[in-house]
Simulated scan of single mutants.
Amino acid sequence: MALALPNELVAAIFHDLDPSTLAIAARASSQFKAVAERILYSSIHITDVLSEQSPHPLKTLWWCEAIRRRPHLCDFARKLYIRWQSDRSVPPVQGQHLLDACEQIEAVVQLLVALESLDLFLGPANLVRGYQDPPIHAIESVIHRCRFPNLQSCSLGADSAKNVQPYTPILTSFLVSSSTLRHLKLCDLRSGLHDLPPEALPQLSSFRGSADAAASILPGRPVRHLSLVGQDSDVNRENLHRMTCTTVPLRYLDLSAMSIRPMLLRNISTYLPTVESLRMKLTLRHTLHYSFSGIRILAGLSSVLSVFHQLSYLDLSPTGIDGVGRADSLEEHALCREWGRACPSLKTIIFPSKTEWILDLNNVWNPA
């Protein structure tokens, strides 16, 4: 005898099941299959590893074919994550099949009008010389006809190299159409988007990308979270100044994707003194303080931290521990007290050793 359960109850039961269990449940009945498919296709996570032996993004192509066979599932898609990773053995000159795969993705993705989160990283696809006239970026070949009225989060990119196809105004047009976007990552956009209209991205609250991209996107927008990628030499006084032109104070700064020299940190403290949370990877080729050894060379940060009057969270865990030497609790406690005097707003410190220290209500630093 079949179970007479409403679809809402079945969906609630299935909601926390892992994909493999859902696939098994889908074979139990036509009702279970319909509910399980809606859940399975609401959040798609695909990673294709490309190699000389397997150069095609097969998982991506299988998903595209599955959607074409079940077009009704497009209405349920909310999150899409596709990442192509290469072992670098795939010769770009033989990679035309990747551009063909991009076209297949585009034919499907443009149908996912209810999408709320889009994460596309197309690996070596943009290293292939395309046949479009005029040429466009591989990512743009996917998004150029897409419009997502409910999109909240978007991450776009591909492997980058010198003289590869840059982004064109297609990217700008896509961002202009994404008025609900709150979180944006553009990992391979090295230059700025100078033609982005002031009224675009009115709800943007976080951005991750290069310094020049940030300098062109942040002004006039309510961005509180900023993550920079690239080299610390890419960050200069000109683009730092433009990063200060947000409509709300920048509160959270993540510099863990680049190696930071003390001089850059001083410039950042000058232009972005409102930062409350700072995460960074220090480069210690030039020691901060020659009179110390081991982790005590970090004592040289005191004068820089004193400029951040609102800094409460400092995370140095991305810094390689070999660069500062292994620390013991006494050295870390001494630094906590020293930095606390220089920056009284500090409440939490994470050292390269990954040890977290917290200032308690009695103004005493203790390991978490």
Rank of each mutant, 00 (worst) to 15 (best):
D232Q: 15
Y131C: 03
V223D: 03
Q132C: 08
L118T: 06
R182E: 13
P149F: 11
P149W: 08
S210F: 13
N239E: 10
D159P: 00
D188F: 02
Q165C: 14
P169C: 06
L193R: 10
N163I: 00
L120C: 03
L181S: 08
V229I: 15
S177R: 14
P166L: 07
E199F: 11
V223T: 07
I143M: 03
G209Q: 08
S206A: 14
S216T: 15
S210V: 07
L122S: 00
A138V: 02
I136C: 11
Y167S: 05
T180H: 07
S216W: 02
A125W: 00
P198I: 10
R224G: 04
R182M: 12
L201V: 13
V128H: 00
D195Y: 09
F121P: 05
S117H: 13
A211S: 15
A213P: 11
L226M: 15
V113Y: 09
Q132N: 12
Q152N: 08
L184Y: 03
D119N: 14
L186T: 04
A107I: 07
T172W: 01
T172A: 07
S117N: 11
P135F: 02
V223R: 04
D159Q: 03
P222N: 09
V229H: 03
L156I: 01
L201K: 14
L175C: 09
G230W: 10
L193I: 13
L228N: 09
V164L: 02
N150T: 07
N236Y: 05
E116G: 08
T180A: 12
A214V: 12
S160C: 05
C154G: 06
Y131E: 06
S191A: 12
L228V: 15
S179V: 03
S179M: 05
Q132L: 11
T172N: 06
G130W: 00
Y167K: 02
G157T: 01
D234N: 11
A200K: 14
P149C: 11
P222K: 10
D188N: 15
S160K: 07
V109F: 06
L115W: 05
V113R: 15
Q203P: 02
S178R: 05
I143F: 02
S191V: 04
I217C: 04
G220A: 10
L189W: 04
P197M: 12
L175S: 08
S117Y: 07
Q165D: 05
L122Y: 00
L115C: 09
A138G: 08
L193P: 13
N239A: 13
L204T: 06
G130T: 01
P149S: 14
E116Y: 06
G230D: 03
L111K: 15
V128Y: 01
L218C: 14
S117R: 14
L111H: 12
N150H: 14
D232F: 12
N239R: 09
K185Q: 05
L186R: 01
V164G: 00
D133G: 02
H225Q: 06
P124R: 00
N236T: 15
P134V: 04
N239K: 10
P166T: 07
H144N: 10
I170A: 07
